[in-house]
């Protein structure tokens, strides 16, 4: 049996319009054989989580360069819990200082990538995280 393709939803929350990074990630994930759904700009946490559930994705990636990460990441995590979708892997990237990155990873963001991270690192991370999640699901 062939392995199922990894499905990832990519989104830009908040008001920030810088989409270079997320488009590069979308292209890299696509070229790595994943199914990528890019929602576009100015998505509210509600819109992101609804789309993730509807598209039945393994992971959600968001990109925030505006400094609003300490508001937006927790809001998405809360919304995931509220809708029972907290098994979906949440990761992200952007202009995020180290101590905020630590705080976010403690709160439940699986991984925060900062400037200079190679796309290969993000691809590897997603593959491992999805594999771990699927194994856990099998046990349940």
């Amino acid at each position: 049996m062939t392995e199922q393709k990894i499905r990832v939803l990519l989104a830009k929350p908040g008001l920030d319009g810088h989409d270079r990074g997320i488009k590069v990630i979308a292209a890299a994930f696509r070229d790595a054989g994943m199914e990528v759904i890019y929602t576009g700009l100015r998505q509210t946490p509600d819109m992101i989580v609804n789309a993730a559930i509807q598209e039945d994705v393994d992971a959600v990636g968001v990109s925030i360069l505006s400094g609003a990460h300490m508001t937006l990441f927790p809001a998405i995590l809360d919304m995931m819990k509220e809708k029972g979708a907290d098994d979906i892997i949440l990761f992200g990237g952007g202009i995020i200082p180290d101590d905020d990155k630590e705080k976010l990873e403690k709160l439940g963001v699986a991984k925060v990538f900062t400037p200079g991270a190679p796309t290969e690192e993000a691809i590897e991370f997603i593959r491992k995280a999805v594999k771990a999640k699927n194994e856990k699901d099998k046990l349940v």
């Binding site: 908040g14 008001l15 920030d16 509210t44 505006s66 609003a68 300490m70 508001t71």
Partner: peptide
């Protein structure tokens, strides 16, 4: 800031955190 650039007042719900 982004709310100003996007034409939202600081007390608008979309401005939260920005």
């Amino acid at each position: 800031d982004l709310p100003t650039l996007m034409g939202y007042d600081s007390d608008h719900s979309r401005s939260l955190g920005e």
